[in-house]
C-alpha cells in the first residue's frame, strides 16, 4: 500500500496527475466529437449527394474498425501525413505532434462518428410541424435550425450523448499505446516497475468507476434541466 503514497516513494501523485490527463483528454475529444459530429450530421441531412455519401463512408468506417486501429493510424502514420500536408504549403521544418493532440484527434474522430449518428437521429425526429411553423413565420432556414430544431434535437439527444461520453471516457484508456501518461499507461508502467498488477489496475478500475458515477449524476442533472418545460 505504501506504493500509493504521494511524492517520491509512491505512485500516488503520478496516478493523480494521470487521472487529470485522462479527464482533460476525454473532455477535449468529447467536445471535438460533439462539434464535428453536429457538422457531420448537418452535412448528412442537408447537403448534396456527394457530401452525404462521403460522410456516410466516414462514419461507417470509423465506427466499424477497432479504435486501436484508428489510434495506430494517427500515431504511426501521423508524421507522414502532417509533413506531406505541410510541404504542400512550402513548410519543411519540424512539426511537432504532441501525443495529447494525437489522442484528442483520434478519440475525437471516433466520438464524432457516434455523435453524428445520434444528432442525425434526433434532428430527424423533431416534429416536421415545427419546421413548417417556423417557415410560416418567415424565418430563414438557418434561423429555424438554430432556434427551433436544434434545441429540441439536443434535448432528445441527451441520453445518447451521455452514453457517448461514457464511451469516450473509456476509450481514453486505449491511448496508453501511444505513451501518453494517462491512467492506463501509468498503471502499466507502475505494474512493470513494481510487479504488483492487482493493486494498480484495481486502483485504475476504481478511478474509472468513480468518473463514470460522477458523469451519470451530471447527466441526470442536465437531463432534468433540459426537460424542465416538458410536461410529464
Amino acid at each position: 500500500m505504501e506504493l500509493l503514497y504521494w511524492g517520491n516513494n509512491g505512485w500516488g501523485d503520478e496516478i493523480f496527475f494521470a487521472s487529470l490527463v485522462t479527464i482533460a483528454l476525454a473532455v477535449c475529444s468529447y467536445a471535438l466529437g460533439l462539434v464535428l459530429g453536429l457538422y457531420i450530421a448537418m452535412g448528412k441531412l442537408y447537403s448534396n449527394k456527394i457530401v452525404k455519401i462521403s460522410l456516410d463512408g466516414y462514419t461507417t468506417v470509423v465506427r466499424g474498425i477497432p479504435e486501436l486501429l484508428v489510434i495506430y493510424l494517427l500515431f504511426f502514420g501521423g508524421e507522414n501525413i502532417i509533413t506531406q500536408i505541410a510541404s504542400v504549403f512550402g513548410y519543411d521544418g519540424f512539426i511537432n505532434l504532441p501525443p495529447f493532440l494525437i489522442g484528442v484527434l483520434a478519440i475525437g474522430f471516433i466520438s464524432a462518428s457516434y455523435s453524428a449518428e445520434v444528432f442525425r437521429g434526433s434532428i430527424k425526429s423533431v416534429h416536421k410541424g415545427q419546421m413548417e411553423a417556423g417557415l410560416s413565420l418567415c424565418l430563414s432556414k438557418d434561423k429555424i435550425f438554430d432556434k427551433i430544431t436544434l434545441p429540441q434535437a439536443i434535448r432528445i439527444a441527451i441520453p445518447s450523448l451521455g452514453n457517448i461520453w461514457q464511451l469516450t471516457l473509456k476509450d481514453t484508456a486505449l491511448i496508453s499505446v501511444t505513451g501518453l501518461a494517462e491512467i492506463m499507461r501509468i498503471s502499466r508502467v507502475a505494474t512493470n516497475s513494481e510487479r504488483e498488477p492487482f493493486l494498480f489496475f484495481i486502483v485504475a478500475a476504481c478511478i474509472f468507476l468513480f468518473l463514470t458515477s460522477v458523469s451519470t449524476k451530471i447527466q441526470k442533472i442536465i437531463e432534468k434541466k433540459y426537460n424542465r418545460s416538458m410536461v410529464r
Binding site: 482533460a24 477535449c28 467536445a31 471535438l32 460533439l34 462539434v35 453536429l38 457538422y39 519540424f94 511537432n96 504532441p98 501525443p99 495529447f100 493532440l101 484528442v104 438554430d146 436544434l150
Partner: peptide
Amino acid sequence: MKKIGFLTIIIIAILTIIQFNKKSS
C-alpha cells in the same frame, strides 16, 4: 451554436498549445 463550436475549438487549442511548448530548443 456556432459560438459554442468556436469556444470548444479554442479550449482544445489552448490545451494543446500548453503541450506544444515542449518543442525542440
